[in-house]
């Protein structure tokens, strides 16, 4: 009973196939499921190729145009060369978040190492592309123009620190939202069973309150799942824009 009510249990990583560090775990299985679902969604959605889209095709086109619109807005048409990366990031985070909302599933994005690795993909892309495209001019990112010489070292230091903290804030934001949301859901859902188990009929009646809350939080979590995927994508686009236009 304690195991069933433990709100941390859902984040446990269990090896499914193989042993040791690189065993195929439940986390890996859900990553695979995420990839399969995204690909299946897009392939089935676009299989009809009708002029007037059906529901699934409409969704597939909508997700494409939504991400394309975000990329164009934040980094212009030049940013479209990063579109496959940004689209993959958005779909991966969104689907991982949404799959995690199904009870008894594992949420890939509730592990900081996963979100950190995803944000490092963005940051490494920015750094590598920035230096490859602009050479040392990329360092102008840290030296804003029009700043008086005597405070320039200070400003440059702040810019460097803010640049280095980007992957951390990007990954912690997503991870913390997913983690906190799932713990909250589990705790409130746990109250329902605990109340009815200990107080019988009265507890069952009282349990309606946390149940209503759990329902409300579930709805909120759907919003958070989408919103965090969008925020992650939007920030990734803004950072990638720095690689395209390092000058402020």
């Amino acid at each position: 009973m304690a195991g069933a009510l433990d709100p941390i249990h859902q984040f446990q990583i269990v090896p499914l196939i193989g042993e040791g560090t690189f065993a195929f775990t439940n986390s890996a299985a859900y990553m695979a499921l995420t990839v399969v679902l995204i690909t299946g969604f897009l392939m089935i959605g676009t299989s009809a190729r009708t002029l007037v889209p059906g529901r699934l095709q409409s969704l597939a086109e909508m997700s494409y145009e939504f991400v394309a619109g975000t990329v164009r807005q934040t980094s212009g048409d030049g940013g479209m060369k990063f579109f496959p990366l940004v689209f993959s990031l958005f779909m991966f985070v969104l689907f991982a978040n949404l799959i995690g909302l199904i009870p008894y599933t594992f949420t890939v994005t509730s592990h900081i190492i996963v979100t950190f690795a995803l944000s490092m993909v963005v940051m490494l892309t920015v750094v590598i592309y920035g230096f490859a495209k602009h050479g040392t001019h990329f360092l102008h990112l840290f030296v804003p123009s029009g700043v008086p010489g005597y405070i320039l070292p200070l400003v440059a230091a702040i810019e460097v620190i803010s640049f280095l903290s980007r992957p951390i804030s990007l990954s912690v934001r997503l991870f913390a939202n997913m983690l906190a949301g799932h713990i909250t859901l589990k705790v409130f859902a746990g109250f329902v069973t605990m109340l009815s188990a200990s107080l019988g009929g009265v507890g069952l009646a009282l349990g309606v309150l946390p149940l209503i809350l759990a329902i409300g939080i579930t709805a909120l979590e759907f919003l958070v799942a989408f919103l965090q995927a969008y925020v992650f994508t939007l920030l990734a686009c803004m950072y990638l824009n720095d690689a395209l236009h390092p000058g402020h």
Partner: peptide, 17 residues
């Protein structure tokens, strides 16, 4: 382990996309 599997599956997703 997570980084390895993420690299594999995210790489696969990137290719597929």
């Amino acid at each position: 382990g997570q980084i390895l599997w993420l690299a594999i599956f995210f790489g696969l997703l990137y290719l597929l996309m």
